[in-house]
């Protein structure tokens, strides 16, 4: 056997390992630098501009262009929380129901019709959802419920549609992966399909369904453009579903381009980005904790 070829082959084997290893390391580097850079800008609100964290988190006064800038982010934080939670309240029941339909009620129709439909829902770009919200939903709300139409309600509805596919597909995967035996055991005891779903499958799939809901919540929290296009962008805490409002992502989208790097205003926007980053990381940790409780994993 050709010795040189053997040596080259061994070297290639090493080199390949090094290359794929560095690709994986790159992912870690990327996450660290994301946190580092966003934090380095985001913390200057508190370090350079000396704005107390308490004011940033709990004050509702957003007047960053004043002589003495006030950067109370409460309206945005509350806005993001409201719009996301109400969106999930709508999409979670629908999403879990459609997952159950796909896996338990009609596998054939699920596979042929609902599954592809859900995949297309995921694929529709968020600006298209935003555009639909703007051109259909907003005028509709304005006409039938009053107000401008640009409102918390519009944001909730758009986000409900956008988070639905996430919840459906993750829940469906969980329910599908439940062992056949527990279904059979339930049916063998004379349970109906609905009893099996309600008393056996949903409880068994609970950690997975919870994960699905948290993922949906994370997506709602991080979505920027579709929400920004329909909520009216007023930096206030809305008093009703029909009032305009702002979210963390929408204020960043709107104002980042109009501010100068290094100003208190700009720094405050970076602080909001840092807050988003921390919240999305928190969701990940939460999912890990929930996932660990799974019974059938």
């Amino acid at each position: 056997m050709d010795k040189r070829y053997e040596v080259a082959r061994k070297r290639q084997d090493m080199l390949g390992k090094v290359i794929v290893f560095s690709s994986a390391v790159l992912l870690i580097v990327l996450v660290i630098s994301l946190f580092y850079f966003v934090a380095s800008k985001g913390l200057s609100t508190f370090i350079v501009n000396k704005i107390p964290l308490k004011e940033f988190l709990f004050s509702a006064e957003w007047r960053p262009d004043r002589e003495v800038p006030q950067v109370g982010a409460l309206p945005f934080i509350v806005g993001s929380v409201l719009v996301s939670i109400f969106a999930i309240l709508i999409s979670a029941p629908l999403g879990v129901s459609s997952a159950i339909f796909m896996v338990e009620i009609s596998k054939k129709m699920g596979q042929k019709i609902l599954q592809p439909a859900i995949e297309i829902f995921v694929g529709i770009p968020s600006v298209v959802y935003g555009w639909l919200g703007l051109s259909v939903l907003v005028p509709f709300i304005s006409k039938h419920f009053g107000g401008l139409g640009f409102s918390l309600l519009a944001g909730i509805l758009v986000l409900a549609i956008m988070t639905l596919p996430t919840i459906t597909s993750v829940s469906a995967d969980t329910i599908r992966s439940l062992p056949v035996e527990i279904r059979e055991a339930s049916y063998a005891l004379g349970a109906t399909r609905w009893q099996t779903i309600r008393h056996v499958l949903i409880p068994a799939a609970k950690p997975g369904i919870l994960t699905a809901i948290i993922l949906g919540l994370a997506r709602a929290f991080g979505e920027a453009l579709a929400v920004q296009m329909v909520i009216g962008n007023r930096p206030v805490i809305p008093k009703s579903f029909l009032e305009p409002m702002s979210t963390i992502t929408s204020i960043i989208t709107m104002e980042m381009g109009n501010t100068v790097m290094g100003t208190a205003w700009n720094n405050a926007l970076w602080s909001l980005a840092l807050l988003l980053l921390i919240i999305s990381f928190f969701f990940i940790i939460l999912i890990r904790l929930v996932g660990r409780r799974g019974m059938y994993r």
Partner: peptide
């Protein structure tokens, strides 16, 4: 964990980065 963090990163934050 890095993969999960990156994949749930809001895209506006990635844009700012």
């Amino acid at each position: 964990l890095s993969v999960e963090t990156l994949s749930s990163m809001p895209s506006i934050v990635v844009g700012l980065f």
